[in-house]
Every structure is written in C-alpha cells, then in structure tokens.
Nucleic acid binder design. Structure first.
Lengths: 204, 204
DNA sequence: GGAAGGATCTAGCACTGCTAGCGACTAGAG
DNA sequence: CTCTAGTCGCTAGCAGTGCTAGATCCTTCC
C-alpha cells in the first residue's frame, strides 16, 4: 500500500509535470503568435496572460521574466530555421549556397517577428561563452555546410560568418524598407557571385 | 516709432527663436549623450527632462514624441557617419573600399547607441517614399563612391546595397557578440576580396 | 473530517510615454 | 505707471508597462 501510494504519487506527479510542461509550451506559442500577429510591442505580460487564460504571476512561475519568454521563442525559432535550411536542397542548376540563402531570406521575410527575437532584439542569448542552445548551433552548421563547397582555400568559418552577416544585413535592411525591392534578385545574384567565384587566386 | 517697435519686436522674436533652437539642439545632444552613456533604455522622458533642466512637457513642445527625438539623433548621426566616410581616404596600398569599410565598422563599434538609432531601432525614418534626410543620402553616396572603382560591369547601386548590407550585418552581429572576435580581420579581408576581385567574368 | 501544503489570483508598486489645466511671467495699450 | 492678453512652463495625473507580496482557495494526505 505504501508502494501503491508511492506509485500513484509518482504518476500524479508525472501528470502534474506534464501539464506544467504543456502550459510552458502554451505560453511560448501564445507569445510567438501574438508577436507574429501584432509585433513584439503588443506582447505584454497582461495580454499574454489573458491569451493563455491565466493571471500574470503564472508566467513568472515558468519564466524568470519577459525576456526569458522572448528567448524561449527565439530558441524555438532557431530550431525551425535550422530545419528549413536542412531541407533546402538546391533544385537542378542551383548551387547549395543559393538554396540556403533563399531559404534564409524567405524565413526572415515570412516570420519577421520570429527573426527579430532571434537576431535583432537585445535579448542576449548566451551565444559566446556560456551554453549556446543546440538549435542555434544547428542553424549555423547548416550555413557552414552550404558554404563548404565554395570556400576553396579560404577559411571556412570566417567565410561562413561573412555569408551569414551579409544575409542578416540584407534581411534586416529589407525589413526596415531600406533597400530597393526591385533590386532584390540582382542583389542576391551579386552576393552569391562574389562569394563563390573568387577562389582562383593561385593563378600564374 | 512704429518702425522702431517693429524693429525691436522682430529682434526680440529672433532672440526667442534662437533660444528655442538652442534648446532644441540641447535636447538632441542630451538624448545622444544619455544613450551613449547608458543605452537607449535609459533615455526616458523624465531623465531627459532632468538632464536639460526642464520639465517633460517642454520636450513635447519641441518634438512630437520620444520617437521624434530618437529620429533627430539618428539624422544627426547620419551626418557624422557621412563626414567620417568622406574623410576616410585610403592609406597607400589600401583600396578605397577597404578604407570605407573600416571607417563604417569603426563608427558602428565606437558609437553603438548612435548606430542603433540610425539603423536598428524601429524608428522608421521616412527612407523609401517620402522625404529622406539629406544626411542619409550623403552617407549612402559615400558608400557608392567607395564601391564605384571595383564594380566593373556589375550594377553599381545593387553592389553598393550588397556592400552596405554586409557591413551592416557584420556591425550588428559583432555588437551582439555573435561573431568570433578573432576572425574580425580575416572576415573583412574575405568580404573585400569577394566584392572586388570578381569582375573577370569575360575571360576566354 | 481536519490539517498541511502548494498553486493561483487579487491588488499593488515603481516605472513608462504623454497631456490637461493651472499659474506666473512678459509684452503691449491706454 | 497700470492693467489686460497671451504665451510659456510647470504640477499633477492618466493609462499602460514589468514584476511581486500577500491573501485565498484547492488539493492531498493522515
């Protein structure tokens, strides 16, 4: 009976934890949806609490603060970006670099709020020193793989950082309406051409 | 005498307007200083009012709202960037493209708050359709001039946008601690090499 | 059934951007 | 020199923000 009590106790505790985990995810999803629908300015703790049908303090039993919620959305978004990049296989005649670039820019264009949380907002994800979320490493790894075929004698990591920076710059400046939309295609052509065709330095 | 009254009237009015203009500039300077010292989060209307030694409503007699103040700072910052780019002449053996890139990144690194107001914050400067501030046009013009010597057969405007996007991406990702500092030099070398050496497409 | 414990909510704090309305000071007319 | 207009800046306040202390209810166990 004590074992039975313990058994039920454990299983009830499991249910509790499961429900907690579900609510945790519910909050993240609600924040993402709200941000995608109305922008991050509309994501206030009150509106978020209302959307998940709990009071605000419940949010703080799951996350340390609003920043932590945004960070959780960002991590999840990174996973999605990594997934999109992984399945972005080049169609025939297209380079892998181009396929990756187009997938990246498409993501930034179609999910601006998500992209914002990941790379623009000052929500410092651990990134450098501490524990970098695996999702982010995956996403960067996909970019490395896309650059690898064209890097030639050039440093792969550095060139990937250049590639990523250029894509990020284009994504954010386009988002801010700072670049001419009619140059979108040409701009990408020039970038890809510049990055891929340069490794013939050791010519006589 | 009526002419004398009018004369004094005008000159007093002039003094008033001059003092108003000075206070206008005082507010902009205070906002910039506060942002550079403690970041834009620290720039609240109350702290700003305290710094200029007026009450908050005075700010609103000069600017439509806080956004307008940030915008004014951004415009002034653009003028400064344009000035820096203009006088960034290449030392011997250095390309003009490199000189511009280094000046741009130096500005972003040393004046992060100013750079933020100009290109990161969502403070939508008119930019596309409406009246773009001359300062911004000047800054972009300097970039065009730096790209011009290397554009070859490629579209100058589009290539300049690529150049700018890459610099902007590097600037913001470095600022966020997302890129490896030890690759700083190599990264810039790769970018400049990629952008300048590619115009030998018409080879046999 | 009653006590212990945890989960959730109400109410509130200190702050934000922004504004209505009062009060003082200035400028001009008689 | 006095009195009136009008401008100018201030005090005080509103609605909203992120976040939290304390009360309250509800479950769980003996």
């Amino acid at each position: 009976m004590s074992s039975s009590a313990r058994f039920f106790g454990v299983t009830i505790q499991n249910r509790r934890e499961r429900e907690r985990a579900e609510r945790h995810q519910l909050i993240i999803d609600a924040a993402r949806e709200l941000a995608e629908a109305e922008g991050w300015d509309a994501v206030t703790t009150r509106r978020l609490a209302e959307k998940v049908e709990y009071s605000q303090p419940v949010l703080y039993s799951h996350f340390k603060g609003k920043d932590a919620i945004v960070r959780a959305v960002a991590v999840q978004g990174s996973g999605e970006l990594a997934r999109l990049l992984r399945k972005a296989r080049p169609s025939r005649g297209e380079s892998r670099l181009r396929a990756a670039a187009e997938a990246y820019l498409k993501f930034a264009r179609e999910r601006p709020a998500l992209y914002d949380a990941m790379f623009v907002q000052q929500v410092d994800l651990p990134w450098g020193t501490s524990e970098v979320p695996q999702e982010l490493l995956d996403a960067f790894g996909e970019l490395v793989a896309a650059v690898e075929p064209v890097h030639g004698e050039r440093d792969l990591d550095a060139l990937t950082e250049v590639f990523w920076s250029s894509l990020h710059g284009i994504a954010t400046l386009v988002q801010g309406g700072r670049l001419r939309p009619e140059l979108d295609d040409l701009r990408l052509d020039l970038l890809l051409g510049a990055l891929s065709l340069t490794q013939d330095e050791d010519r006589p």
